[in-house]
Write a protein that binds this DNA or RNA. Structure first.
Ligand SMILES: NC(=O)c1ccc[n+]([C@@H]2O[C@H](COP(=O)([O-])OP(=O)(O)OC[C@H]3O[C@@H](n4cnc5c(N)ncnc54)[C@H](O)[C@@H]3O)[C@@H](O)[C@H]2O)c1
Ligand SMILES: NC(=O)c1ccc[n+]([C@@H]2O[C@H](COP(=O)([O-])OP(=O)(O)OC[C@H]3O[C@@H](n4cnc5c(N)ncnc54)[C@H](O)[C@@H]3O)[C@@H](O)[C@H]2O)c1
Lengths: 211, 211
DNA sequence: TAGATTTTGTGACGTTTTTCACAAGTGGCG
DNA sequence: CGCCACTTGTGAAAAACGTCACAAAATCTA
């Protein structure tokens, strides 16, 4: 039951949640920390330590009730409710994301799409009409949007961010390869695929030369 | 000059490299650890420690010569050469990635596209023709492919991986939301956007209830 | 009920990573 | 040249994170 939670713990909690869904799908009722560890590339002690930051959810000798733990994790991760999301940038990556069903399945509901291209503004994607950037603030405000998926070119990203932040959003999933300047309290997750490719080439290069 | 390098160091090195490119674009010749730190959301001491794992590249009193450090980082990260990449899965995310210029700019050159859909096989994207999965091994072999960008549905991912690994690839950028089973020496980077959204909703939820 | 068996929750411990602090280089300038 | 201002590189200290080991709780068996 501690205060500051390591980011690595949060990542693992997401894995545990996915594993629990799988296990529930298999019809199982309980699960041990050891099994969760096996499915998540970690150790049983780590699983228990991770969970212990938030309380004690298991029964000694038995393990965890799958359904209960799943509910607890959803609560902890804040996915026990619907999050209203705006997609800003209806380009290549934006359209792939929009059609990706996994987001909505997890409670992230895209309720607005914004793009600056006059050719795109007004077009309909699913049930949504693409809106111009001028409407960002009012959309966020009237639709109660808390999260933004930012998929615009790098040079537009900071400006859009400032406006979204000003309108009261709470978190950003940022695809633009820049470090956004935001108030300290705001949550930002960067998706940087070039960095991940570089991690791969480093690992491969290192391995070859190192030992 | 140590042996085992933290993953967080590698991530920061990528940031430093990008910052150095910006700085070079601004026409500057030298840079201090402090300025690199400011641009990278870290500290000057951390920058110096990160670099010190690989040697000493700066001059006391002066800082680092931008061009030289950039070259060293490219060498360290293994991006001082071209990496041949296969894109497997020519769907929504695959097509966004294929058209993303940042990869090629950094030396990741897509030299093959594979998809299982008969409607897609044979189509041309840029200068490439989409190949059927049966050809994975021979493409990897004859084209000298070392990296795979895996953008197929989760249920196909492991099978494709096994074949690519068998054919000798060295790293995988994996978009499928499963943990791939690969030999220990193989480099895998997972892109898991749902996990990143969950990190956001956790941070937001936590902040609200915590303090 | 007693004893064997299982598995959690957690304090203590060990390792990794970050931060700190400063001696030692470097160039500029009077 | 000698001093000053600046900045690196790096041991040592601190903090963060992960692992271990075991008492405690729960079930099962007979
Ligand atoms: N394509 C990829 O695979 C990929 C991968 C990782 C990151 N990214 C990053 O994601 C961002 C978008 O990439 P993309 O490939 O989809 O580019 P894209 O050009 O296909 O799409 C960008 C969209 O943003 C719109 N836009 C531009 N300025 C805008 C503004 N001020 N307000 C609202 N909309 C605006 C454009 O009209 C366009 O529709 C870029 O920052 C890119 O670096 C792309
Ligand atoms: N769309 C997104 O925004 C997004 C985001 C993150 C992760 N992902 C993941 O990326 C993967 C692809 O997603 P998508 O949205 O592009 O799906 P998609 O259905 O649009 O594309 C998948 C492609 O893979 C091809 N394919 C299927 N089986 C194959 C096989 N055995 N060999 C070769 N090709 C095969 C299909 O023909 C299709 O073209 C999925 O695992 C998904 O979970 C998608």
């Amino acid at each position: 039951m501690s205060r500051r939670i390591p980011a690595s713990t949060i990542r693992r909690l997401s894995h545990y949640l996915r594993s629990l869904e799988d296990i529930e799908g298999e019809g199982r009722e309980t699960v041990s920390s050891e099994e969760l560890a096996d499915r998540g590339q970690t150790t049983a002690a780590q699983v228990r330590k991770d969970l212990s930051h938030f309380g004690s959810f298991g029964k000694r000798g038995l393990g965890y009730r799958v359904e209960e733990l799943r509910g607890r994790l959803r609560q902890i991760l804040g996915v026990d409710r619907v999050w209203r999301v705006a997609l800003i940038g209806a380009g290549r990556i934006g359209s792939a994301l929009f059609e990706y069903p996994a987001f909505e399945l997890r409670g992230y509901e895209c309720v607005a799409i914004v793009d600056a291209d006059p050719e795109k503004i007004g077009a309909t994607w699913g049930a949504l009409r693409i809106r111009p950037p001028e409407e960002i603030e009012s959309l966020i405000d009237t639709l109660g949007i808390e999260l933004v998926i930012l998929a615009v070119p790098a040079q537009a990203a900071q400006q859009i961010t400032d406006r979204a932040v000003h309108a009261g959003i709470k978190g950003i999933l940022n695809f633009a390869p820049i470090r956004l300047k935001v108030p300290a309290h705001l949550a930002v997750e960067d998706v940087n695929l070039v960095m991940q490719l570089e991690a791969l080439s480093f690992a491969i290069t290192q391995r070859g030369s190192g030992d």
